[in-house]
Measured scan of single mutants.
Amino acid sequence: DIIVVALYDYEAIHHEDLSFQKGDQMVVLEESGEWWKARSLATRKEGYIPSNYVARVDS
Rank of each mutant, 00 (worst) to 15 (best):
D1L: 15
D1F: 14
D1S: 12
D1C: 15
I2T: 11
I2G: 06
I2E: 06
I3A: 03
V4M: 05
V4K: 01
V4T: 02
V4N: 00
V4F: 09
V5P: 00
V5R: 06
V5E: 07
V5M: 08
A6C: 06
L7H: 03
L7S: 02
L7N: 03
L7W: 03
L7D: 01
Y8K: 10
Y8M: 11
Y8P: 00
Y8V: 08
Y8S: 06
D9K: 06
Y10G: 01
Y10C: 05
Y10H: 06
Y10A: 01
Y10I: 02
E11R: 11
E11Y: 11
A12C: 04
A12V: 03
I13D: 08
I13Q: 13
I13W: 09
I13G: 08
I13K: 13
H14L: 07
H14V: 05
H14G: 14
H14T: 10
H15I: 13
H15R: 12
H15F: 12
E16S: 12
E16W: 15
E16V: 08
D17R: 09
L18C: 02
L18R: 01
S19Q: 06
S19D: 06
S19L: 02
S19N: 06
S19K: 04
F20T: 00
F20K: 00
Q21I: 10
Q21V: 11
Q21M: 11
Q21R: 15
K22Q: 08
K22A: 11
G23L: 03
G23K: 02
G23P: 00
Q25S: 08
Q25G: 04
Q25T: 12
Q25H: 15
M26I: 06
M26E: 00
M26G: 00
M26T: 00
M26Y: 02
M26Q: 00
V27C: 09
V27R: 07
L29C: 06
L29V: 08
L29D: 03
L29I: 10
E30F: 10
E30I: 10
E30T: 10
E30W: 11
E30M: 10
E30D: 14
E31M: 15
E31Y: 14
S32V: 12
S32Y: 14
G33F: 05
G33K: 05
E34V: 12
E34R: 13
E34T: 14
E34Q: 12
W35R: 14
W35A: 05
W36N: 03
W36C: 09
K37L: 15
K37S: 05
K37Q: 07
A38H: 01
A38P: 00
A38S: 03
A38W: 02
R39E: 03
R39Y: 11
R39I: 10
R39D: 00
R39M: 11
S40K: 11
S40N: 13
S40F: 06
S40I: 12
S40C: 11
L41Q: 06
L41R: 05
L41H: 04
L41P: 04
L41A: 05
L41I: 11
A42I: 12
A42Y: 08
A42D: 09
A42N: 11
A42P: 05
T43C: 05
T43E: 05
T43I: 04
T43A: 04
R44H: 15
R44K: 14
R44D: 13
R44C: 15
R44P: 05
K45T: 07
K45Q: 12
E46T: 12
E46R: 04
G47M: 02
G47R: 00
G47N: 00
Y48I: 07
Y48A: 04
Y48M: 13
Y48C: 12
I49T: 00
I49A: 01
P50T: 03
P50K: 07
P50H: 08
P50W: 07
S51Q: 09
N52L: 09
N52S: 15
N52T: 11
Y53C: 09
V54M: 05
V54H: 01
A55H: 09
A55R: 13
A55G: 07
A55F: 08
A55P: 01
R56W: 09
R56M: 10
V57E: 07
D58S: 12
D58H: 12
D58P: 12
D58R: 09
D58Q: 11
S59V: 13
S59R: 10
S59P: 13
S59E: 12
S59N: 13
